[in-house]
């Protein structure tokens, strides 16, 4: 599974526009929006697919890199083009580190 290329130039321009107009970044950019409810539920908007799924960890691809959810009894409650929902006992959440 390949993650679609992140062109640094265009990304930065969009980011600047978003900043200038005070727009929420997730609506302009393909930046993932990650919502965690307690430690039982997690949802990611703007995902690019699932890289790995076991009951102990779910790795989800996003524009910014892969988001790793680790825990116990993890289940994917729903998956559509825009949204992934993860349920279970969430213990760790690793966000992608910016290259720079």
């Amino acid at each position: 599974m390949s993650i679609s290329g992140n062109k640094p130039g265009s990304g930065r321009a969009k980011e600047r526009i978003a900043e200038f107009f005070e727009l929420p970044r997730d609506s302009i950019l393909d930046v993932p929006r990650i919502v965690v409810i307690g430690n039982a539920e997690l949802s990611i908007e703007n995902h690019l697919g699932i890289i790995e799924y076991t009951s102990g960890s779910v790795v989800i691809a996003t524009v910014k890199g892969s988001v790793t959810v680790r825990g116990k009894d993890l289940a994917i409650s729903s998956i559509t083009k825009t949204l992934v929902g993860v349920q279970g006992k969430i213990e760790h959440l690793d966000l992608p580190v910016e290259p720079r």
């Binding site: 799924y53 076991t54 009951s55 993890l74 289940a75 994917i76 409650s77 729903s78 998956i79 559509t80």
Partner: peptide, 10 residues
């Protein structure tokens, strides 16, 4: 491809 999947369990 637009197929809805839910309650996936390992």
């Amino acid at each position: 491809s637009g197929v809805e999947l839910w309650n996936l369990q390992r």
